Simulated scan of single mutants.
Amino acid sequence: MINLKITVGIPAFNEEKNIAPMIQKLNQIADTIIVCNDGSTDDTGKIASKMGAVVINHPRNLGYGGAIRSLFLKARELESDILVTMDSDGQHRISDVIPVANPIINKQVDLVIGSRFLDEAQDNIPKYRKAGIKMITKLANASLDNNVTDSQSGFRAYSKKILLEITPSEKGMGVSNEILMKSSKQGFKIAEVPIVVSYEGETSTQNPISHGVSVTLSTLKFISIDHPLKFYGIPGAIFLFLGVFFTIWTLQLFSETREIVTNLALIGVGCLVFGVMLTMSAIMLFSVVSVIREK
């Protein structure tokens, strides 16, 4: 059996209290540990370096997506066979690293998500967070070949193929869905395994509303690029239909009363204009994306 080089990547921002015990435990199971010190103002980077981790220092905070991108590039540079990413806030269990990586070790899939929703016994996820994650996951599933249960999990494993073929570009939390959609589009196999996450003390500092809005907008952007005819074309057709309907209604009333119902006329014209704009956007974006893909 060929030994695979397992690298664990940790995006970290001001996590000096958590980083040392994490690295100490990870040293027992990982070949390499990469810590992306994402503009921390504390000693996160210094501690990680002393503990033997490969440290990437961002001079300023670039966000979760920027940290994941740096981890991808460094893991690629180090010729890692598997990259496992996990959060630095103590929510993820070190004991779940190998189970998350196993489907790739066994050459079954290319990307593994550690899902918080496969273990029925785990019911400690805050309700507002669970609702938000499920909504965003449903949105992501619109562009995936196989549905997943937890598109926002940061506990993942990536094969060498993924590391070589995909370079994340999103700077925010939308990077999770970006990687999923790009992987699915390129035919990489995706699987999930159950993990347990601790929410004691509410360790997350991310505002749930800004998080949700950011991820939703990012996901919609990638869906619009991947499926422009559906994303713009279907709404465009609906608005065109409404425009024609209200225009005919307006003309019919005019023929009967010789008066123009201004409200109906404005709705009809507005729907027609908006429908034409959406339809043209669908056609132009589809043409541009097709040309880029051919090249």
Rank of each mutant, 00 (worst) to 15 (best):
L217S: 11
E120T: 11
N263R: 03
S184W: 06
F72E: 08
R60F: 15
V100H: 02
Y232G: 02
L242F: 15
L83I: 09
V261H: 09
K160H: 08
I234L: 12
I34F: 12
I283V: 15
H58V: 02
G212P: 09
I136D: 06
D123S: 12
K17T: 08
V112F: 11
G233W: 05
I82F: 14
G9I: 06
Y158L: 06
R293V: 11
A75W: 00
L62M: 15
M181W: 06
G63C: 10
D89L: 08
A30Y: 07
N147V: 08
G66D: 00
I283Y: 15
R258G: 00
V291P: 01
C271L: 02
K160S: 15
D119A: 14
T247P: 00
N141P: 13
I179E: 01
P194L: 09
R60C: 11
N146W: 11
I234W: 06
I223M: 15
S204T: 11
P11H: 06
T167L: 05
K74H: 04
Q152T: 14
N207V: 05
I19G: 05
L264M: 06
T279C: 03
D150P: 11
E256H: 05
S224V: 06
A121K: 15
S80N: 12
N57P: 00
P11Y: 06
A75D: 02
L164H: 13
I82L: 10
T247K: 00
K46R: 13
N146P: 03
G63V: 13
M86N: 03
R293K: 15
L73Y: 04
G66S: 04
I94P: 02
G236I: 04
G45M: 08
K221P: 04
S198Y: 07
K185W: 12
K138L: 10
I225N: 07
I238G: 00
G45T: 07
F188A: 07
T216I: 14
L220Y: 13
C271I: 00
G9K: 05
Q28T: 14
I225M: 13
V193R: 08
V276T: 09
K171P: 03
T7G: 03
G174M: 13
G9Y: 07
L139V: 05
L118M: 15
I133K: 02
Y232L: 05
Q252Y: 12
L144H: 07
E200S: 13
T262F: 01
I10P: 05
G114M: 07
S183E: 03
E200A: 15
V215R: 04
L251N: 01
F274I: 03
I29R: 09
I238D: 07
P194F: 12
S183Q: 05
Q122L: 12
N102M: 15
